[in-house]
Amino acid sequence: MSINVAWARNELKVFLELAELHRPPQPGGGMVVISSSMSNRGSLAEIVKQAQVVEQILARVLPNWRTEISDERSKRVNRWCQHIEAAQRADAVLHREAEIRENLGDNAPQLSAAALHPWVWEGARALWQSGHFREAVTAAARKVNAETQNKVSRKDISETKLFQNAFSLTMKQGEARLRLMPDDGGDTFRSVHRGAMAFAEGCYAGIRNPNSHEDNLPELPEHEALEQLAAFSVLARWIDTADVEIT
């Protein structure tokens, strides 16, 4: 589902108003206090409540904001400085993204990790948002494997063997099979299920295994990790929508 831009920008605006930094007024009675400390206009309770919503917006608009935006000012000046800058950037993205893409000559469709199949994004989200892209892909692969085991009631096999069994063209007494279309005896039925089996094997042999078993691999670039998540999303959607047949 696409983001409601008007709603998101308003939530960011409310947060920025509450978190705005200012110097508190001087006390009365002729006393002057010299201080460089800055305070937020809203109360801590108000800011915390609004931050709960804003952080979810930031996760959609600027997934890596915690690592890409320095938190030094939050440590030295005010605890909300990192949030303030992230909210300002996110508001600019929401307000001007279409204009920027059009004028920079790249108006191609955009893929959001949050729009991938829920099994994939739920498995990857926490690691993805902390910038651990390779581990996020591995976690998504584990989630798809676990959901497939649940669907066909097979905890005794996993990954390649699991998908070979699930998409097998032959039925075996008491074993569940995943069917992407009815078996009409035609070539398309056989092709679809052989393809699904080969695709699943490719995802785990070519993506999941190297990510998990090779030591000292460099971190994946974000766009490459997103491509790998998309592959698992295709597989997850096939599995999720497949019918289960048992003889």
Rank of each mutant, 00 (worst) to 15 (best):
A6W: 05
A8I: 06
L12H: 12
F15N: 07
L16V: 12
L18G: 09
A19I: 02
R23W: 14
Q26S: 09
M31L: 15
M31P: 03
V33L: 09
S36Y: 05
S37C: 10
R41L: 13
L44N: 12
A45T: 08
A45M: 07
V48P: 04
Q52M: 10
V53M: 12
V54Q: 10
A59I: 09
V61Y: 07
P63M: 04
N78M: 05
Q82T: 07
R101V: 03
E102H: 13
L104A: 10
G105S: 02
G105L: 06
D106T: 15
L111N: 10
A113R: 10
A114D: 12
H117I: 02
W119D: 11
V120W: 12
E122C: 13
R125W: 12
L127H: 13
S130Y: 04
R134W: 00
V137A: 14
T138Q: 08
A139C: 10
R142A: 15
K143C: 08
N145L: 01
A146Q: 09
A146I: 01
E147Q: 11
T148I: 00
Q149W: 05
K151G: 00
V152L: 01
T160S: 12
T160D: 10
A166V: 07
M171L: 09
R177Q: 04
L178P: 01
L178A: 03
M181N: 11
P182N: 09
D184F: 06
V192K: 13
R194L: 13
R194C: 09
M197S: 14
G202W: 00
Y204R: 06
A205P: 00
N209Q: 07
N211F: 02
N211K: 06
E214F: 13
D215H: 06
N216I: 08
P218R: 14
H223E: 11
E224R: 04
A225N: 03
A230M: 07
S233F: 04
A236L: 02
R237K: 13
